[in-house]
């Protein structure tokens, strides 16, 4: 379980990183925390010819309040968010306990998780739930993509090969929001995850489709679960998954109502 050979590039600035990505094209992959990518490389399921390391780029990590909104630098770690006092964005801190385990949270990053786009990943759910804007820098500058438009399919996003996530902006506070999950074993990717924002009347579900599923003006948990199109899969039937959705939406709502 050793990765295939690659050329290592270290970017010092976002412009430098974008320059490298532009030059290297599809053969290049950005590495930040690497907590998903390196595991896939060790299995040789991912074998980029070039790795562009952005962990040494100055100024990409950090949590900043900007009026109503909260801005997370792409390199902000899960652990930094977990430990931060985020006031009416506390849902983000609380959700971090569902992200892997401590040694994963110390390295894994907000931007990396969103770029990786696992449909059950906490950051993907939170971004959609809170209508986050993903700021991506490319050769022609920075553009903003709404989270709902960002996730295109399993591990597929709206990001161009020469673009780099630099920041994720959460536009408004969510004092009554929560995320909860179910997995047989602690720290695993969720069988089903549910995130709710009571004030916005939004529910986002993970583990039920190739991308996070947003339900606006959501009804009862029963109605949300009933409306999903699910298929039986080995080891987990549609019926069971629907039941988990119902339970987790109820539980997330209960947690959210406590604020």
């Amino acid at each position: 379980m050793k990765p295939a050979a690659f050329t290592y590039h270290r970017a010092r600035t976002t412009a430098g990183a974008v320059g490298l990505l532009t030059e290297l094209g599809d053969d290049a992959k950005v590495i930040a925390g690497g907590q998903s990518l390196v595991a896939m490389m060790n299995f040789r399921l991912a074998r980029p010819e070039h790795l562009v390391d952005i962990t040494h780029v100055e100024g990409l990590a950090g949590i900043r309040r900007d009026g109503d909104s909260l801005r997370l630098g792409a390199l902000t770690t899960h652990r930094a968010v977990e430990k931060a006092d985020l006031g009416d964005f506390a849902v983000l801190s609380r959700a971090m306990r569902w992200v892997g385990h401590l040694p994963i949270r110390t390295r894994g990053t907000v931007g990396g998780s969103i770029a990786h786009a696992d449909a059950a990943a906490e950051w993907c759910l939170l971004a959609v739930l809170l209508d986050a804007r993903i700021r991506a820098e490319g050769p022609s500058g920075v553009r903003e993509i709404r989270a709902v438009d960002f996730f295109r399919g399993p591990f597929t996003t709206a990001l161009q090969p020469d673009e780099l996530i630099v920041e994720v902006v959460f536009p408004r506070p969510a004092p009554r929001a929560a995320l909860t999950e179910y997995a047989d074993r602690r720290g695993d990717f969720a069988l089903v995850a549910a995130a709710v924002d009571l004030d916005a009347d939004r529910v986002v579900l993970g583990g039920v489709a190739p991308t996070p599923v947003l339900v606006e003006r959501a009804g009862t948990a029963e109605e949300i679960a009933g409306a999903l199109e699910l298929r039986d899969e080995p080891g987990i039937s549609a019926h069971y998954r629907r039941g988990l959705v119902r339970t987790l939406v109820q539980r997330a709502r209960k947690e959210a109502s406590r604020g």
Partner: peptide, 8 residues
């Protein structure tokens, strides 16, 4: 203890 909501 079993969790009726999840089967846990």
């Amino acid at each position: 203890e079993l969790d009726p909501g999840t089967g846990g």
